[in-house]
Amino acid sequence: MPDKPKVAFYWCASCGGCEEAVVDLAEDILKVVEAVDIVLWPVAMDFKKADIAARPDKSVAVAFINGAIRTSEQEEWVHMLRRKAQVVVSFGACANSGGIPALANQFKKEDILKFVYEDCPGIDNPQKIRPQTSTVDEGRTLTLPVLHNMVRSLDQVIEVDYYLPGCPPTPKIIMSAVQAILAGKLPARGTVLSPDIALCEECKRKDSKPADLALAEFKRPHQVQIDPEKCLLAQGLVCMGPATRSGCEALCPSGNMPCTGCFGPTSRVKDQGAKFVSSVFSNIVPKEEKDIDAVLDGIPDPIGTFYRYGLSKCILRRKLN
């Protein structure tokens, strides 16, 4: 089948959810499989790196890459895929903006390693052995990838042509992206392949949001009996919907949970967390610093709340230390 476009899937620092999302296409996946020739998909098929390296440059039509970039191995793979692929699609929140792994950008690498290999309860490592990037065993040098000091989005490492947002991207936006690619009907490079309008647009609770919302208190989902009809922000929950791109059809609010922002911001916004803060906190009730602070105390982890999926794309990129 020489005429079928060649497609690669690759995963970096990710949970596997993006792979699941492809499987979640259900019967639709058969149409995809029929239309393309999958040359790389580590989760499902066995391919060797050398096989990909041996392919001519630009011989792969599309590479879908999910996961953030944390190690030199991931870095190396994505550089190679960039060379081999005509189009690179950043697939899912981790690849787009660091995702959950990027929350590690609040900590030093050394602190993370120390915790994981020494201090974490349940670790039994009296010699404090840490993985080494290079070790000699029976005369052979074995290597492991380097753990980078920070978690990066895919586009902070290689050029990216399109983005599919979401943790993970929903079957609907995956299918429409795949169809667009196969049909050659692609928008301008750099586009996020999901509607460029915020989530409230497609939220069923939209009409229940009062026009004069002024919050005096923030609550976390476990602290309240969530009304299944009413706007979640109006219930004092941090719902990132207004600052988050739509396309998921408001899955979380439909499941009675506030939006946590996995689709990232609209194209007009550089920093999703900053912009959300600018909007929601402008109109909280108190006017005095002390009372304002009392309201803000309802959000004990602002970075984790406002940058749950996007700390790599925060304008400041990581915590300084």
């Binding site: 460029d196 309008i197 915020a198 989530l199 409230c200 647009e201 939209k206 009409d207 949001k209 009062p210 026009a211 004069d212 919302l213 002024a214 919907g241 207004p242 739509s246 609209t266 007009r268 909007s279 929601v280 402008s282 109109n283």
Partner: peptide, 24 residues
């Protein structure tokens, strides 16, 4: 581009911002 989240509506001290219920 507007999703109709109404975040802006209460911020205007002059009530220059209104919510168009038909267009949302």
């Amino acid at each position: 581009e507007c999703c109709g989240c109404k975040s802006c509506v209460p911020l205007c001290p002059y009530t220059a911002i209104t919510f168009d219920e038909a267009k949302k």
